[in-house]
Design a protein around this nucleic acid. Structure first.
Length: 417
DNA sequence: TGACGTCAAGATCCG
DNA sequence: CGGATCTTGACGTCA
């Protein structure tokens, strides 16, 4: 079983994908962006390996305007070596990657221009995975598309378009139930008929359930048969509702108890789980640490190093409490640990907590900072106490110092996010 | 025509 | 002038 996350990584400096608007998309600008984005991908793959994450969705923005006339570069040749190098790494790390064109790639549209752009977009996604020299188990996840007032003919449009795709694209595609139009039973019908593996998405299924009533685990088990051995292990998408937002919005973090409840009902490990969640890699590591058989407390200590200042800002009491539960090196209190983290992070940062934590962090620079840096920091703290500036202004200053002095412990902290 | 989702880029404002 | 904050872009469907 692999557990992973989509597109972006939280808490790593200079690991953001870059893009530009169409009117600025000159050849040289695009070259610069592609080169930067491939470096970022390489960094993320290394990060994933270091953190035991073996499932990752590559952002569709890897190549800006990759499927559009706005990008006329032969990027697959120009950056071929770089792609191959990253692909080799992915294989060496035994990772599985995927891509997921958004809701705007519509293969069954009634507008032929939209369909041909969708085909171009799929060609682009397949080309990225081909350039990485990855096999057929590295998939492209696609939705069925629109309904246009007549679902039966919309489905047959999808089938027609799908069947006329080149086979090197077809064999990468897997289809997913969406939250508006196509329920899991409809997608399963299509997938079974055309031999396309089906990805079950639990939140989409909740918002747009099938008329046929089955529980989540039954649907997941039904989907399994659509995955042939050359497709790799079955994949599902898992996400949770953000209670503060509209139905279908992904939660900030994966609430671990709810995940573990799902996981135990699943009672299978021969499948991969792609998390769709705002805090990305953080939830992936959390879910991995709570389901792993390794159960090494060092994993939790590493997590604590990242979270501790975010906890301290919100609750000194919980900070002390969590330190206490990590004391016993023979135990592995992962669930308790993450419960405490989740509970604490729901709270607002207090002024007192912010000041205290900032001074804590300043401790790394006290001895090495210049006179001017001392003055600026003290001034900021006074302003913060008086309510004249916000905490993020102080944090940005501390981040600047962290980068300047390359303070490793802080570079990996979530304090600045 | 605007909401929907996504996220930087780009534009503008502020001290 | 640099940094913070607000707006736009790019996509297709649907009400």
């Amino acid at each position: 079983m692999k557990i992973g996350y989509a597109c972006q990584v939280i808490g790593i400096l200079n690991a953001q994908q870059k893009s530009c608007i169409q009117k600025n998309a000159t050849d040289s600008k695009l070259r610069e962006l592609i080169s930067s984005n491939l470096n970022v991908l390489d960094t993320i793959i290394d990060y994933n390996f270091k953190n035991g994450i073996k499932l990752f969705r590559i952002s569709s923005d890897l190549i800006p305007f990759g499927s559009s006339q706005a990008n006329k570069l032969n990027w697959w040749e120009e950056f071929g070596d770089e792609f191959a190098r990253i692909g080799t790494k992915i294989k060496r790390y035994k990772m599985r990657v995927s891509m997921h064109p958004g809701q705007y790639t519509v293969l069954n549209s009634t507008n032929p221009d939209v369909v041909s752009r969708a085909v171009e977009d799929l060609r682009y996604h397949a080309r990225v995975l081909d350039c990485l020299q990855l096999g057929q188990s590295h998939k492209i996840v696609l939705h069925i598309g629109g309904v246009y007032g007549d679902k039966i003919s919309a489905i047959s449009c999808f089938e027609k378009s799908f069947l006329s795709l080149p086979s090197k694209i077809k064999r990468r595609i897997v289809i997913e139930n969406d939250d508006i139009s196509y329920s899991i039973s409809e997608v399963l019908d299509i997938g079974t008929r055309l031999g396309i593996p089906v990805v079950f998405d639990n939140l989409h299924n909740f918002k747009n359930p099938s008329e046929i009533k089955k529980n989540e685990v039954d649907w997941i088990n039904t989907c399994k048969s659509t995955w042939k051995s050359e497709d790799g292990d079955q994949k599902i998408h898992y996400s949770q509702q953000d209670p503060a937002k509209r139905a279908g919005s992904h939660s900030k973090t994966i609430r671990i108890n709810e995940f573990l409840e799902f996981f135990s009902r699943l009672s299978r490990t021969d499948l991969d789980i792609m998390l769709e969640v705002k805090d990305k890699n953080l939830s992936a590591i959390k879910c991995i640490n709570c389901t792993t058989e390794a159960r090494k407390i060092t994993a939790l200590e590493n997590e604590w190093a990242k979270y501790k200042y975010s906890v301290l800002e919100r609750s000194h009491k919980n900070y002390v409490e969590i330190r206490k539960i990590l004391k016993d090196k023979e135990k592995y209190p992962a669930i308790l640990f993450y419960n405490m983290i989740e509970l604490t992070l729901e709270n607002e940062i207090t002024i007192g907590g912010a000041v205290n934590t900032a001074q804590h962090v300043w401790g790394y620079f006290k001895k090495i900072a210049t006179k001017n840096e001392h003055d600026v920091f003290l001034k900021r703290i006074t302003q913060l106490k008086d309510g004249n500036i916000q905490i993020h202004t102080v944090k940005n200053y501390l981040l600047k110092l962290t980068v300047k002095y390359q303070e490793k412990y802080l570079l990996e902290s979530l304090y600045f996010d």
